[in-house]
Design a protein around this nucleic acid. Structure first.
Length: 558
RNA sequence: UGGGACGUGGCCAAGGUGGUUAAGGCACGGGGUUUUGAUCCCCGCAUUCGCAGGUUCGAGUCCUGCCGUCCCAGCCA
């Protein structure tokens, strides 16, 4: 499950858990990951997943996956299935799969218990009235006129709410706490509302549904969760979490601990905004490779391991942060550098003719799949008289320190021969259409003559054997680090119009055409690429650029 | 004086009960290796922990005050 080799990183939650084991407060640690099935998981959720599953796994505990399915208006089984799939893909297996809806009856019974003890009442104000009586951040609220209904009346009303005797919004069950509390959450929070809609799991069995605060802590207690980890915005809810558990006959009292969400720059991370990007067509779907969703990252070519490593390196604290995208990119580069087979592909081709190479002939060269790892083996790469090289690898009038091909200059063809540029052919506009070179037969890779030093090595693909491919180049979704920072402008105004560019005439070596969707490669000197799920035809593979290689040459030229 | 929280180098972040050289990663700068200007390997990178006082032989760790940032007024989660 948590198969990443490096030792665990210290953080305040892990410290609490360790202390709780040392002191004997708990001998088994039980955590839970509680998504609401109303959207897809994103990289931020992955932080919570890694934390919850990671902590439990490290200390020999258990982690439940529990759907917080208390709002049937927004939830669906499709989302639930996608979430399950994403969690598994990330490399985690839950101990038990639960649903808050599994506990609807118990939740209801506990609510009755509260009513019996005078700790809850049915309020018949409408939402507007409730809001106006709630007070403000600085001023206390005022009691509802229904606050002192008798237990019998409350019991009766609540039961009739459950049985469908009222329309949505007619009544609500509220905890009877303190309308003057400085903590807004304690000003008689609603715990049940009427919603006569079909729930994706319980169907039409219920006409009332519990609110998050009521359902969450009790569900934790029912499952014997020891540490209930959530994000910072629930800090204010903790007194309520505790109040509920103190006022029902709960068998245990989990400890809620809050940590900061992890944000990334150049993207947005709220489900609402991600949904908007999808629904308004700014991206193709939830799994668009530019999306920070798990599905998007997966399709982009990110591995589960790289995402786990990323969050491990980012750490867990209570300080809100925005992590540079480069850190995530670094994680996938490290992973792919180690595991991606090397291959050659030319994205922006220009033709080179090897003038002393016999016409009509070709040969297959052996090239290592990984320069540092012989265990990854070799592949065969065809060479013939005409080859494609990257347009950017030739300059007629190059600047200083340009190590690539130039008129009269020599360069090594990766895994093949050293070539020398003797001539260039131009069209009527004066742009180069063809480069004539002669190759040095003695410099063939593996031969002693190959030891000759030449400054540059470039990649290439045989024109005769190369396969035409579509390559999708992705860039950041937004062109500012924090699209939400500007209060004057809508974040959509910062969408990067160049976040996707399609290269329709890339040429890849034959090896690539044998791959399946999900397979990844390093295009040497270019970047890491993954075969997209749209790729159906071996004669024309479709690849996504996961991330480019580091490019210090580009950096110098900036 | 509504309440709750946070503030360690450009970005994350470690720093139980104060003890003395402030981890690590990313980024950055310099050097080396290299048939990927990739990788890899060295070296450098906070006399200082939001600021100001105080307690102490000794404080990032304790106290006081101030400043800055975030969250809370859903019958959302």
């Amino acid at each position: 499950m948590n198969n990443d080799q490096t030792p665990p990183v210290s953080n305040f939650i892990r410290n609490i858990v360790m202390r709780d084991r040392e002191t004997g407060k708990h001998d088994k640690i039980i955590t839970r990951f509680p998504p609401e099935p109303n959207g897809h998981l994103h990289i931020g959720h992955a932080k919570s997943i890694c934390l919850n599953f990671g902590i439990a796994a490290e200390f020999g505990g258990a982690t439940n996956l529990r759907f917080d399915d208390t709002n049937p208006l927004k939830e669906s089984d499709d989302f639930a299935q996608a979430i399950l799939n994403d969690v598994r893909w990330l490399g985690f297996e839950w101990t038990e799969l639960r649903h808050a809806s599994d506990y609807f009856q118990q939740l209801y019974d506990f609510a009755v218990h509260l009513i019996r003890n005078g700790k809850a009442y049915v309020d018949s104000q409408d939402a507007e009235a409730m809001r106006s009586r709630r007070g403000t951040l600085k001023d206390p609220g005022t009691d509802s006129p229904y606050r002192d209904r008798s237990v019998e009346e409350n019991l009766d009303l609540f039961e009739r709410m459950k049985n469908g005797g009222f329309a949505d919004g007619e009544h609500v069950l509220r905890a009877r706490i303190d309308m003057a509390s400085a903590n807004m959450n304690l000003r008689d929070p609603a715990i049940y509302r009427i919603r006569r809609v079909t729930h994706h799991r319980t169907g039409d069995a219920w006409n009332i549904y519990p609110m998050y605060d009521w359902a969450h802590g009790i569900s934790d207690a029912i499952e014997g969760i020891t540490h209930s980890l959530c994000t910072l915005e629930f800090e204010d809810h903790r007194p309520l979490y505790d109040w509920f558990l103190e006022n029902i006959p709960a068998t245990c009292h989990p400890q809620q601990i809050e940590f900061a969400r992890g944000n990334l720059d150049f993207t947005v991370m709220s489900k609402r905004k991600l949904r908007q990007l999808v629904e308004e067509g700014h991206v193709s779907d939830w799994d668009d490779p530019r999306m920070p969703t798990i599905a998007g990252l997966r399709r982009r070519g990110y591995t589960a391991r790289s995402i786990r490593t990323f969050w491990k390196e980012a750490g867990v604290s209570k300080a809100e942060s925005i992590i540079p995208m480069g850190v995530l990119e670094n994680a996938i580069r490290n992973d792919m550098n180690e595991n991606a087979p090397r291959v050659m592909a030319v994205l922006d081709p220009i033709k080179v003719v090897l003038t002393n190479y016999p016409e009509g002939e070709s040969e297959w060269l052996q090239a290592p799949s990984h320069p540092q790892n012989p265990e990854m083996g070799h592949r065969s790469v065809p060479l013939s008289r005409e080859i494609w090289i990257e347009r950017a690898d030739f300059m007629e009038d190059p600047p200083r320190k340009f190590f690539r091909l130039r008129p009269g200059g020599e360069v090594r063809l990766r895994n093949a021969f050293i070539i020398k540029c003797n001539d260039i052919i131009k069209d009527s506009d004066g742009s180069v259409t063809e480069i004539h070179c002669e190759f040095d037969p003695d410099s063939r890779s593996g031969l002693p003559g190959a030891a000759r030093k030449v400054k540059g090595t470039i990649h290439w693909v045989s024109a005769e054997h190369g396969i035409n491919a579509e390559v999708r180049l992705y860039d950041r979704l937004f062109n500012v680090a924090n699209p939400l920072a500007d209060k004057e402008k809508d974040y959509l105004e910062f969408l990067n119009p160049d976040s996707l560019s399609v290269v329709s005439s890339a040429i890849v070596e034959p090896t690539v055409a044998q791959g399946q969707p999900g397979d990844f490669f390093q295009f040497e000197r270019v970047g890491y690429f993954t075969i997209d799920q749209d790729s159906k035809d071996a004669a024309r593979p479709i690849l996504n650029r996961t991330v480019s290689l580091r490019d210090s040459w580009a950096k110098i030229n900036r």
